[in-house]
C-alpha cells in the first residue's frame, strides 16, 4: 500500500495529468484525447495552445499505435505494451511516450530523428511539403510526416533516447515539450 502512495506522490510531483501503460488501441486513443481535451477546457487554456497540444498529442499517440513493434512476450518485452504520460509544468506541456522496438530498427529511426532535429523552421516546412507531395504513404500512417509535424508545431528539437533491453529489443522514449508561451 505504501507503494501506491509513493506512486501517487511521484505523479503529483511531476504534475502528471494522465498516464497509461498497456496495449494501445484505437478506442484507447479516442478516450485519452477526450480526457485531455476536457481537462484543458477545465483549465481554461488558450484556444491556440489547446489546439497545439491536441495536435501534437494525436501525432505522438498515433506514432505509438502504428509503429510500436509487436514483442509477443519474448524476453523482457511483453505484447503490444507501451507507456504514455502527459504533464504540465509552469512553462510547458510534456508529452512522453515509451515503446519497445527491434534493435535493428534503432539506427533508422535515430537517423530520421537526427535529420529532423538538424533542420531550421523554414527547412522543416520545405521538407514537410516534399514528403507530403513525393513521399511514399505507408498503409500505417503519414510516411514519416508525424515527427516533422511535431517538430514544426512545437518549434523545438525532438528529445529522445534508446535503451538497449536485450539482444532483441530496445526501449525508445520520446519527450515532447509544447511551450505554454505561444507567440
Amino acid at each position: 500500500m505504501t507503494d501506491i502512495f509513493d506512486f501517487y506522490h511521484n505523479m503529483e510531483r511531476n504534475n502528471i495529468l494522465l498516464s497509461f501503460k498497456g496495449d494501445i488501441t484505437s478506442e484507447l486513443l479516442t478516450s485519452i484525447l477526450q480526457i485531455i481535451e476536457s481537462k484543458m477546457d477545465t483549465m481554461h487554456e488558450e484556444p491556440r495552445l489547446k489546439k497545439k497540444v491536441y495536435n501534437v498529442l494525436v501525432e505522438c499517440l498515433q506514432n505509438l499505435y502504428h509503429h510500436m513493434d509487436e514483442t509477443s512476450g519474448e524476453g523482457a518485452a511483453t505484447g503490444r505494451s507501451a507507456i504514455f504520460m502527459i504533464g504540465k509544468t509552469n512553462g510547458a506541456y510534456h508529452i512522453i511516450t515509451g515503446n519497445y522496438l527491434f534493435n535493428e530498427n534503432v539506427a533508422g529511426l535515430k537517423n530520421r530523428l537526427d535529420d529532423v532535429n538538424s533542420l531550421s523552421k523554414e527547412e522543416l516546412k520545405d521538407y514537410y511539403k516534399q514528403i507530403l507531395n513525393n513521399g511514399e504513404m505507408s498503409l500505417k500512417g503519414g510516411g514519416g510526416l508525424g515527427m516533422i509535424d511535431i517538430a514544426r508545431k512545437t518549434g523545438q528539437k525532438l528529445e529522445y533516447d534508446f535503451l538497449k533491453v536485450d539482444d532483441k529489443f530496445s526501449f525508445f522514449t520520446l519527450n515532447i515539450k509544447v511551450s505554454t508561451n505561444q507567440q
Binding site: 494525436v58 501525432e59 504513404m137 500512417g141 503519414g142 510526416l145 508525424g146 516533422i148 509535424d149
Partner: peptide, 13 residues
Amino acid sequence: LEYFNTSSSKCIL
C-alpha cells in the same frame, strides 16, 4: 477542419 493528423494530410492532398 478543426484538426487533422498527418495520416489525413496525404489523403487531403
